[in-house]
Design a protein around this nucleic acid. Structure first.
Lengths: 226, 226
DNA sequence: GAGGTTTTCGCCTATTAGGCGAAAACCTCT
DNA sequence: AGAGGTTTTCGCCTAATAGGCGAAAACCTC
């Protein structure tokens, strides 16, 4: 039971890690998580371990990533770990235990087991889902400017995008919608930014390709079954 | 350790099931699989169980799907099952044990545990991957006509598609390429079909959306890290 | 009010998907 | 051999979506 907890901080994608006290990998940094008890279901076990590192109400999205047999541990003992992805909005700053800290995903410290690899895998999943779903809602506050949204998308995707195009595409897909509020123009000078919100804060996917769609249908979002 | 083994037979998507002898769910149909032994890795355990139902050399593609805590079993005992997807080409007819049979995925018999739900989930995954990867290679023989490919895609996607469009899109993406052979025109009368092959028989993904791509890049297939 | 900054909008182009009908290349039957 | 039927393939057009770029809008400070 492991979770890669992602949050965009200062324009870069970060992941939450805690420093292991005990062997194996004492002193290395590991993903939040822990063993599954004998009578527990997957979800409740993850929640229990996650809650010991970060406030669960700060986690806006949770998704199962993959299950691995841990290879670097004691070879006599087989260990299975199921990894999840958890997303935290930029406007939160959860208080975390003293042995726990945020690290930028492209400057990870030495990690225990294959946890660095799990983070890479989770990041790829996040990157893909940002482009064909509305998961973005879990990474930004309820209302936000296009500029804010852009830095979040850029941090996750790892390359520059234009706010013009981001706004157009997301509006056309009806993933975001304008509010009539604007950002109080107190800050840095410049035209006050309009504020937007996500149309729906549950996971929706756009049909990934128009290709092979049944005839007479135009691309729309569809609800995903959990 | 479970596997949803998919094959297109007679133009319909089928899944391999075996009839459970013992309780719980005695007499119900279940996915191939079995318990993980104490010292085993995930992959080898799956291979071992799968081999007892179908020749492993017939499985052209294998991918992890999801892990669930089995809810319908004895509640005192926690059971974790990791499900995989396995794909078999249409030109094969593996011999299977007498307690094992193929069922069309939309006419499943009463299944043990949540196995019907796993098949649905696997089918969704297959459907999605057909549209943005080249997994199709695992479902058809080495060379094939566009008409053959079309029936396979239609069976998996669950709706009609035109061979014209299928051919164009797959050629443009360089997922398939023409061979200079044509189908021996022995069969039903009509122009002999040209034979095609998949350009690459390892998993490649097309960038799911042009959207948010870094500038100056045109959509290309990229290798997926396993 | 001038000059600077940031956001927003409009117009154009590029790329990819989809429809449809004509032509090509085979068959069988007379 | 030719007529008629069948299936595949190709060309041409339209539709939908993504991307670039510059002008205009709406604020700031000086």
């Amino acid at each position: 039971m492991l979770a890669a907890v992602f949050q965009v901080r200062d324009g870069r994608l970060h992941s939450l890690l805690w420093r292991r006290a005990r062997e194996p990998f004492g002193g290395f940094w590991a993903l939040p998580g822990g063993p599954l008890s004998d009578v527990e279901r997957l979800g409740s076990s993850l929640g229990r371990h996650l809650a010991s590192k970060v406030d669960l109400t700060d986690v806006a999205y949770l998704e199962q990533l993959e299950t691995r047999s841990d290879v670097e541990r004691d070879p006599r003992e087989r260990t299975i770990a199921t990894a999840y992805i958890a997303l935290v909005s930029t406007d939160l700053n959860p208080s975390v235990p003293s042995d726990t800290a945020w690290f930028a995903v492209d400057e990870l410290p030495p990690t225990a087991f294959d946890h660095a690899s799990i983070i890479r895998s989770g990041r790829e999943r996040l990157r893909a889902k940002l482009t064909y779903t509305n998961v973005g809602y879990a990474l930004v506050p309820g209302v936000f400017s296009i500029a804010e949204l852009r830095t979040v998308y850029e941090a996750c995707l790892g390359h520059a995008i234009t706010s013009t195009n981001l706004q157009r595409v997301l509006l056309r897909r009806e993933i975001i919608e304008p509010t009539n509020a604007v950002l109080s123009p107190s800050s840095s000078g410049g035209r006050p930014a309009a504020l937007y919100r996500f149309t729906d804060r549950t996971l929706l996917v756009t049909d990934p390709f128009a290709m092979f769609r049944p005839p007479n249908r135009t691309a729309k979002m569809t609800k995903i079954s959990p």
